[in-house]
Computed example of a mutant assay.
Amino acid sequence: MKKETPEYLSDIIELLLDAVCVVDAKGCLLFTNPAFETIFGYTLEEAIGRNMLDFVYPEDRAKTINAINQIVINNQQPRFENRWVRKDGRIVHVLWSVYWSEEKQVRVAIAYDITEQKNLEQKLIYMAGHDPLTDLPNRSFLISELEESLSVANTISTIIAVLFIDIDGFKQVNDFHGHAAGDKLLKTVAKRLRHQLKKEDSVGRLGGDEFVVILNSISNKQDVVEIVDLLRQEICKPLEYNNEFLSYSPSIGAVLFPEHYGDAEYLIQCADKAMYNAKNSGGNRVIFYHSGIKLPSVK
């Protein structure tokens, strides 16, 4: 004997904080509970009859269709994640738990709003790859970016320049004006570097007063010379702190790839050596790496 569904179950569905949806074989919404409007912003009248793909974030539609096919055809992957667009335009990250009824030819799905969790994950990932003071990529993230640039350059035979920048006078700024002045100097240099670089280029902070720039948009050595000159002028613009102008200037080392062939760590080391040569030559200038450059002896 077939059991009747208790009437109180419909009341429970109405009270759920997660959205419940029933979708037909063509993907049209047949039923939603009140939580659907809370999560996605659409009323029952606005949602019923519309294809659920209309609400899916465009870039996630293909993977959503694939997940649905796996559930309906192969009876696999009853859970998957995608993004929906709320009525107000905000993006909602959703974890779906889905059941396909072959007999009734409908999908019953429960939507868990995981937006807050996803945002926290993205924030932690961002923090792990960025310097908290300047908001620039840190060494780890920068190495990854450079390795990716080298991979592309190897594939399409382009030139990359790596610049190693050290701020001469940074220690004196810290010693005579305090660490707050030093922090302001570093944040200002970071901002000025980002302002001058093209969107396809990258800049990161290795630590202390050391920055690395990756130039992906160059054709020859002269391009690097011109860009470095602009960067040097930008960095050296006056910077005032407590009614005094801070005194500092950059020493810059540069290395070209594939003229000097190697991985990200090797190229940064080469640019670092060239920077020390620039510093020992009086600073506020750029030196290109060549195999004859050596690190200065430590006394």
Rank of each mutant, 00 (worst) to 15 (best):
Y126T: 05
E226Q: 15
D54W: 11
R61P: 03
T32D: 08
Q76Y: 05
T64Q: 00
H290V: 04
E240P: 04
L295C: 07
H195P: 04
T43I: 08
S249C: 14
A278E: 01
M127T: 11
L163D: 07
L256K: 01
I160E: 07
E210N: 07
Y266I: 14
Y8H: 15
I156R: 13
N119G: 06
I268D: 09
Y261C: 08
N66L: 13
A47T: 09
L136F: 06
I218C: 08
G178K: 01
P296M: 03
Q76V: 01
D54Y: 14
E59V: 14
S219T: 13
K279W: 02
L124Y: 11
L295Q: 13
V85M: 13
E240V: 15
A181Y: 11
E102V: 03
K279F: 00
S149M: 02
K198Q: 15
F170W: 04
A161K: 06
V255S: 01
H177K: 13
L197S: 01
K2S: 11
H179G: 03
H177A: 05
P132V: 13
I268S: 01
H290T: 05
S247C: 02
G178Y: 05
Q105S: 14
R232S: 00
V173G: 04
V228L: 00
T188K: 12
F170V: 05
P258H: 00
P137I: 07
A278M: 07
Y112S: 15
F288I: 03
T188L: 05
Q233R: 06
A19S: 10
S291G: 09
E116D: 15
D60T: 04
R86L: 08
P238R: 04
G262H: 02
F257E: 00
V22F: 00
A67D: 04
M275Q: 11
I227Y: 11
T188Q: 11
I143D: 00
Q222H: 15
D175V: 10
Y112L: 13
L142Y: 12
D88S: 07
K118W: 04
L53G: 09
V173F: 03
S97C: 05
D183A: 03
F176A: 12
V225H: 14
T32C: 14
S251Y: 01
G49L: 01
I48S: 12
V286G: 08
